[in-house]
Amino acid sequence: MLIVKKLSKSLENNKILDNINFELKDKQITALLGVNGAGKTTLMRCLAGVYEPDKGSVRFDNFSVKDNRKEYLQNIAYVPELGGLYLDMTVFEYLTFIAMLNGGCDKKMFVQTIKNLELESVIAKKCAALSKGYKKRTALAAALLKQPKLLILDEPTEGLDPKQKIALRKLLKKYAENNTILISTHIMEEVSALASHIILINKGQIICDAPESEIRKVVPDGNFESLFSSLDGDRKW
């Protein structure tokens, strides 16, 4: 279980996250929703160990991101919105490099991950030559290679075609049977299709943290689009 307590983060003297508290239960997909600039990416970076929080604590399975950094990060994988690929490497080299940073990985699993994400045809291609969809899938494959207990995905289906989106959702749902997933997205269709829990963030503060089914009851017409468009920073749900 991921426990975030009193998390605050400022960047260049601007308070981006202010006293964030929430928990992510095991084996569920949580959607992190918020308008641009709400603090979603900063929050994800804090959870992924990229940023060091100014205040507060982040713990996963009793490991703290600050005090037990290596143990904490061993259970977590993060896929940023902008892939984060080494463009001069081939897909194979990139996946091997990430696997080596995590102590290597089982050959069978390596092959299976490539197959699951349909990367066979581009395995020898340079990352620079990949389409946006393949770049996303390569980054996701690298994250899945370490079989993280918590998978953090920033806009995971951005740039994928409808067929790839469906396949990815299926994969994520299967993965969430034994693990926890946190996704940030603007696509409401994604929230309905994947998430069982929703966290709404606005102006660096959490304004709603509830199961998807409960939110659906209070949202006009059960439509998440209206929930999203109502975000003005003052409304508490």
Partner: peptide, 14 residues
Amino acid sequence: KNNTWEILLSQPIS
């Protein structure tokens, strides 16, 4: 530039 620093810093390495 390539945003790989996010990937590096989220790995269990020093």
